[in-house]
Each structure stands twice: as C-alpha cells, then as structure tokens.
C-alpha cells in the first residue's frame, strides 16, 4: 500500500456520503429568496417574441421597451419562441421573464407544477386547424385513424388535435403523432412524410397559399387566446416592472389596431413569409380584443379540463379547476388599463 492507500480512499468516499446524507437530513434552512426580503435589482429583462404573437414583433421592432427601461439602466433581451412548448420551457427555466403561449399550454404547465401567472391576452386567434394536402383522401377527423399526424406536443395545435380526435370518438392512441416543431411539421406535410398536420399560423397560411393545402377541420370557438405569462416569483418580486411591460404591450396593441398594413409588413418580414400570407393570417384569423385575462379565459380553459384528464396529460389527482384560478391573474392588466383610460 502506497502513501494514498485503499483505506484512505475509503475514508474520503465515506466522508462524501456522510456529507450528502447528513446535509439532506439537516433541518431546512431559509429558502434562498425569502418573500419578505427586498428583491435584487434586475439587470436584464428578457422577453420572448414569436411569429404567433404579432404585437411582440412590433414592440421589438420599435424598441419601445428598450426606451422605457433605459432610464433604469435595465437591458432588454429578446428570445425567439418557436412554439408554446418552447416558451414554457424558457419561462420555467428563467431564460425569459415573459413567455408567449396559448392558454391551453399555460394551463398544462401550471397543472404540472410550473407556477405560471397569465397576466395579459395578446391576441384572440384562430391560429390552428388540421391541415392536409390538396388531393389527400382525408376529409374528416375520423379519417385520421392509423395515420401519421405531425404536431408539437405541449402547444395549442396539439391540444386542438386531441380535442378534434375526441370529438370524433378517437384518442391519441389511434393516430401516430410525430413530434415536430411547427415549421418542421409544415415541411413534413408538404414533402408527404406525414398525412396531416396540426398547423399553426403563419406556417399554416403559408402552406395554404404556397401548396394549396386544405384546412379540413376548423373550430374558431376552440381557441384559448394568446397568453403572456410570468413566473409567480417574478410577479411578486417585480410587480412594477410587470406593469410597465404591460403598458408597452397596450401601446403595441393600440398601434396594431390602428396600423394594419404596417403590421402585415412587419409580420411578413420577421417570419419570412410573403405579404399575402401575412395578410391572410392577420386579417382573417387574428383579433386583438380586451387584453385583461379574466372570466373569458377561464371559461374556455374549463372546457378543456375533461380532455386533459382523459388523455392523462397531468398527474392524477391534480385539481385543474384550482389550477385555472391560480393561473389567471387579472390585477396588473386592470391597473394598466385603468391608468391609460384615466390619461
């Protein structure tokens, strides 16, 4: 046995284990960020932007947020979300402070334990439908049995697909759902690698105009709004920042309603689609209604509760109704609107 022999090694290893176990069994200390303590100063504000959240594109272009927070010395960063699933991941991990998802995706995240708060409705879209190629034999949802459908799990089109299947008496098990992010899903459909696609605008409109794709199943009434979400801890720590961001979002909403042509141009340029596609999306299938998340959101979310339970998308025993209540946070939006109304 040399200078560092076997016995010494065993002692070190035993020590490691001891530390691990002992520390774990030790009484819990105070959590890292106590609610009562003053929040650390925010250096960087990170938001996501998405082609399915046109107002975010406007805000990013115009630099209004950078303007707003310049005087506090807070830097603003933008991260592209390619779908609700990504936006949720970014929000949960802290990669962004504000994430853009569909209402259904926000509820899914909340029910699975992510402490999200929906603080704003950025649009009321009919942004999803079931799409197939022009001369495909698929005419209705029941024809999807045994077929391959491209969809992005954790997003609104996926929820839409599940709801559609449910309405035709089918479930997830009856089709082969191929996991592809939205832009890849469109490609797969156009290349004939899948039989159908749970589409999302603007890719969906693009497929329609470029390849004559058919939206064979539409339900505008099933939309769950475009929701802007933050983590509960962020809202608690920086309520003023949240309100300031929402103020800028309101400015964007107003601008979008007043400048439809410029909005089309911005969407087309950002998402690299033609102006015709952008026009189709914005004029036919997007609206910018009252942005305060309240009963209207809760009502549509309650409609999908049975589906979530049936498809076992959350652990058994989760109270979805309570999750909806905990998710929807109308306070900040109301403040912002009342202030702008009183201006």
């Amino acid at each position: 046995m040399g200078p560092f022999g076997r016995r010494d090694f065993l002692k070190v290893a035993a020590g490691l284990v001891g530390v691990g176990f002992g520390a774990a069994c030790a009484p819990a200390g105070a959590p890292v960020s106590a609610p009562g303590a003053g929040p650390r100063r925010l250096d960087v504000l990170r938001l996501d932007y998405a082609y399915y959240n046109p107002v975010s594109l406007v805000m990013r272009r115009k630099g209004w947020l950078e303007e707003e927070f310049a005087r506090d010395g807070i830097k603003v960063e933008w991260v592209l979300s390619l779908g609700s699933n990504k936006a949720n991941e970014f929000t949960a991990s802290g990669t962004v402070h504000f994430g853009s998802t569909a209402g259904s995706a926000a509820l899914l995240a909340r029910a699975n334990g992510v402490p999200l708060k929906t603080v704003w409705l950025y649009s009321q879209p009919e942004w999803t439908a079931l799409v197939t190629l022009k001369d495909s034999p698929i005419r209705q949802v029941a024809d999807l049995r045994g077929r391959r459908v491209a969809a992005t799990r954790g997003t609104d089109p996926w929820f839409f697909l599940l709801r559609a299947l449910d309405s035709a008496g089918l479930s997830q098990r009856d089709v082969e759902i191929v996991q592809l992010q939205h832009p890849d899903g469109e490609q797969a459909l156009l290349q004939g690698q899948v039989d159908a696609w749970a589409g999302l605008d603007p890719y969906m409109a693009h497929a329609e105009l470029v390849a004559g794709a058919r939206l064979f199943f539409r339900r505008p009434g099933w939309n769950t709004y475009g929701t802007l979400n933050v983590l509960e801890s962020f809202l608690n720590q920086y309520p003023d920042i949240v309100e300031r961001v929402l103020t800028v979002y309101e400015r964007g909403r107003a601008w979008a309603r007043q400048n439809p042509e410029e909005l089309i141009t911005i969407l087309a340029e950002e998402s690299k689609v033609s102006p015709e596609v952008a026009r189709k999306v914005l004029t036919e299938r997007t609206a910018f209604p009252e942005p305060v998340p309240g009963d209207q959101l809760k009502t549509v979310l309650r409609e999908i509760v049975p589906l979530i339970q049936k498809e076992q998308l959350v652990p058994a025993g989760v109270d979805l109704k309570a999750a909806i209540e905990a998710l929807v946070e109308s306070g900040p939006a109301r403040q912002v609107l009342s202030r702008s109304a009183s201006r």
Binding site: L16, V17, V19, G20, F21, A23, P31, V32, S33
Partner: peptide
C-alpha cells in the same frame, strides 16, 4: 448515494 443526498438537499434548500 452521495449524489442522491445532494439531489434531496438542493430541492430542500431551494437551489
């Protein structure tokens, strides 16, 4: 075993 302990610890401490 040590890693497991660390896992439990980081959740417990809010890391």
């Amino acid at each position: 075993a040590g890693l497991l302990g660390l896992w439990v610890l980081s959740l417990d401490r809010g890391w």
